[in-house]
Write a protein that binds this DNA or RNA. Structure first.
Length: 687
DNA sequence: TTTAGGG
DNA sequence: CCCTAAA
């Protein structure tokens, strides 16, 4: 149920200047200290999406697993004498535990309603409006779209636009890319800035979307760096998606501040800081695997997960990744940005006849690939082909935020959306005469690119990586029967059925026209590395998610081909979903700790949570920590599902007891691991 | 890998 | 829950 009316912002692609990624440390600072910081990166955004979605979409398998009942007494008896069990003893414990105690079933099943949360759709249709949203949102969005002729908002940077849709007629909103002319030329040379999303009211009438001009370098408030933006922006009219059927995939984003979030929201802003380490660890945490496994064999699950990680489908569950961009560019007198580290190697084409290998991109790791040049030029100088990218277009984006959202959060959301698009791993597609050139082994000459007369027919596209960029959350088509809660129910729409899109060609500068200008109608590339955001468009234009590079002839400029820094796949990670312990789980934990004591979390895990794949011994340790804390605070201060006081009392007793035991053993290091004391005392806990 | 403890 | 030093 929609609790709030939301503003929905449609972002058509806009000129993509270098979109920086704040350093990790910066992000962390920003997250912790500046809630309104516009540097909040897209990772947070996506992580929030993922987390929210996951939370809302509990594992149906676990949720439905209500058959098991635990035999508390059996559990205790089985472990009664296992105060300090050896490995073999633990094996015995396990067997007895399994027989007598079953991991409490999940009870916190939740519906999959996502519409309460702001929906955020990143739709990579280059120049074509599209909507990716939940069905519920779609309805609302569609209604508003159909009725709302005003409130559109265009944010354009060269060939881009940002549209804002709102059902609220009383207000107007718009964004603008704030050209920062206050900075000197030196600033123009810097990369790493953002876009200043300014908002004002009553600026829009019922006509057309406000178009925002750009000049100089746009900035995003809060950014310390500047991105030089190309001048001479041209505008693209709003092209809206009026397809009521636009549904299937949603990208919920919680843009609220922490205080505004639903209590169960887990999409906290701490996500990104853990990305790096998670990237490293995701594959080495077998017990982190919470994938539901009917046979309870976590090892098998572990292996399957490992294998799954190598599988494309698995990668598609990875919603975001750590990205690092380096910017080192200079702008020439023409205002173009030159990336000296990326260029077509002349040697590859000097001797085209003998050049059996395709032109290779030489990439300086220190050079950003997002340096969208003002113009992309391809020309032939003898046998040497030089290219320059004129501009990249950011696919249109649709976001949805509550009306109560702050301007700052709105800015941040927009920034995140843009960053998410630009930060994804991209591939380069080459189009010639409207046909996609698929054979990488062909030479330019063989392909015809070296033909000067056909230069106008050459086009480049930035194609989001199918496994990483632009994660789209699919709410309506999540077909994972044994969905692992920790494995985000996130997928990239690879089927046209997932996302519907229409082109509203009501303007002379529609996206279609732009594409026409590019000299190509884009052929579908479904058969080759299906783009995660392939959109079915009824005009034949496909791969609309691609960022389009405009080619222009330029006889002066050095060839430059922007290329995105390719993040390592191993950096992809997803924060585990928060799954509060149920009372049954707490009870199981308490019993296990009563028996085994604190400090033996692995044993506790094996003993009481062996079948709970998503509970690691670290989790259990953490839970015990919180339980002790909870037991010590007043009931009024406690949050979440109330834990029976009886359990909390036991927690305190067990905790004090085992703390005492630890102290004793520290004073008696010579003593055996406490079998005698333990068994005697532990028996007190076995009622 | 586990434990322990801070974040 | 995450992260990580230390064992």
């Amino acid at each position: 149920m929609v609790l709030q009316r939301r503003l929905e912002y449609g972002f058509n692609g806009y000129q993509a200047p270098a979109m920086p990624r704040a350093s990790r440390s910066t992000r962390r600072r920003a997250k912790f200290h500046r809630a309104e910081d516009n540097q909040k990166c897209a990772f947070d955004l996506l992580a929030t999406v993922a987390g929210k979605l996951l939370q809302e979409k509990e594992d149906p398998t676990l949720s439905s697993d209500t058959s098991s009942e635990k035999d508390q007494c059996g559990f205790v008896k089985g472990c009664q004498n296992a105060n300090k069990p050896t490995k073999s003893e633990l094996s015995d414990e396990r067997s007895c535990d399994k027989k007598s105690f079953s991991y409490p079933s999940q009870t916190n099943d939740k519906n999959c309603c996502l519409k309460e949360f702001p929906n955020f759709a990143i739709d990579g249709h280059a120049g074509i409006a599209s909507t990716v949203t939940s069905s519920s949102s779609v309805e609302r969005l569609s209604e508003e779209k159909l009725v709302d002729g005003n409130r559109h908002f265009n944010m354009e940077n060269v060939t881009s636009e940002v549209k804002l849709y709102s059902s609220d007629y009383s207000k107007g909103s718009h964004f603008k890319l704030d050209g920062d002319t206050s900075k000197g030329k030196d600033e123009l040379h810097k990369f790493g800035s953002g876009i200043d999303m300014c908002s004002s009211e009553n600026l829009l009438d019922e006509n057309p979307p406000a178009l925002i001009s750009l000049g100089g370098n746009a900035k995003l408030s809060g950014y310390t760096d500047r991105i030089p933006l190309s001048k001479g922006c041209d505008y693209v009219p709003v092209v809206r998606d009026d397809d009521e059927n636009s549904s299937g995939c949603i990208h919920p984003i919680n843009t609220k501040t922490k205080s505004c979030r639903p209590k169960t929201c887990i999409g906290d802003n701490r996500i990104s800081k853990r990305l790096a380490s998670n990237f490293r660890k995701v594959a080495e945490k077998p017990k982190d695997d919470t994938r539901s496994n009917s046979d309870g064999d976590w090892k098998r699950t572990y292996h399957s997960k490992r294998n799954c990680n190598k599988h494309p489908n698995s990668q598609m569950n990875i919603p975001f990744k750590k990205r690092k961009f380096y910017y080192s560019s200079v702008s020439n007198n023409n205002g173009f940005i030159r990336s000296s580290g990326i260029y077509y190697s002349p040697e590859n084409c000097m001797n085209q006849d003998a050049c059996g290998s395709p032109p290779r991109m030489h990439k300086d790791p220190g050079i950003s690939s997002l340096e969208a040049c003002h113009h992309q030029t391809l020309r032939c100088r003898g046998s040497q082909v030089k290219l320059r990218i004129k501009s990249f277009r950011v696919p249109e984006l649709f976001i949805e935020v509550p009306e109560t959202a702050t301007i700052g959060s709105l800015k941040r959301t927009v920034m995140d959306a843009v960053t998410a698009v630009l930060g994804g791993e991209l591939h380069i597609g080459v189009f010639l005469q409207g046909k996609k050139v698929r054979d990488d082994s062909k030479t330019l000459l063989q392909t015809g690119i070296s033909n000067y007369n056909q230069m106008d027919a050459l086009g480049f596209t930035l194609e989001p990586n199918s496994s990483q960029s632009l994660p789209i959350v699919c709410a309506a088509h999540c077909s994972r029967p044994s969905a692992d809660i920790t494995q985000p129910v996130i997928r990239y729409p690879s089927s046209p059925a997932v996302i519907h899109q229409k082109i509203q060609g009501n303007s002379d500068m529609s996206s279609e026209h732009q594409v026409t200008i590019l000299g190509s109608h884009f052929e579908s590339d479904h058969d080759s590395a299906p783009s995660p955001i392939n959109i079915s468009v009824d005009n034949g234009m496909k791969d609309s998610k691609e960022l389009v590079a405009v080619l222009e002839m330029d006889k002066e400029e050095l060839a430059m081909v922007p290329v995105l820094h390719k993040p390592k796949r191993s950096e992809v990670v997803q924060r585990r979903i928060r799954r509060p312990f149920s009372v049954d789980e707490v009870e199981a934990l308490v019993q296990a700790v009563e028996k085994l004591g604190t400090g033996r979390w692995r044993d506790v895990k094996i003993c009481a949570f062996d079948n709970a794949k998503h509970r690691t011994y670290v989790d259990l340790k953490d839970k015990w920590k919180t339980l002790v804390h909870t037991a010590r605070i007043s009931p009024q201060q406690r949050r979440g599902e109330p834990v029976p006081q009886e359990l909390l009392d036991r927690v305190l007793v067990a905790h004090s007891f085992w703390s005492q035991q630890q102290t004793k053993q520290q004073h008696k290091p010579h003593r055996e691991s406490g079998h005698v004391d333990g068994s005697v005392l532990v028996s007190d806990f076995c009622y």
